[in-house]
Amino acid sequence: MEIIISVLAGILFATAIYNILQKQLLRIVIGTALLSHGAHLFIFTMGKLKTGQPPVLTEGVTDYTDPLPQALILTSIVISFGVTSLLLVLAYRTTKENNTDNMEQLRGGENE
């Protein structure tokens, strides 16, 4: 199953990158969201998938899933959330100020 999830995460990366390589800002934003999903899935898979109970200590249970990647993902999710929100506002403001959502038109010249 880990292999399948890895493939899934890989596909998320691929679609994310394909979206990021588009011109339209909206697609790029979608791409970044996919990217973080892919990354989190990778972290998740790199622990052991489903070899035990949730890592909440319960008497009599000795077999738990790996808690560390979960902790890392939690941190990462929150951070991505912060970045995504900023990105959305920035994307919005940029579009309004520059009157375009086409990244190819947001190149700029030399002396500005």
């Binding site: 890895s6 892919g38 790199m46």
Partner: peptide, 25 residues
């Protein structure tokens, strides 16, 4: 895009398949 996705998958699988150590977990 596909190349990069594939790269990540391949590294991911390889990394997962070479767990030589116990986790600190």
């Amino acid at each position: 895009a596909v190349g990069f996705g594939a790269l990540m998958t391949v590294i991911g699988i390889s990394a997962h398949s070479s767990n030589w150590f116990d986790s600190i977990s």
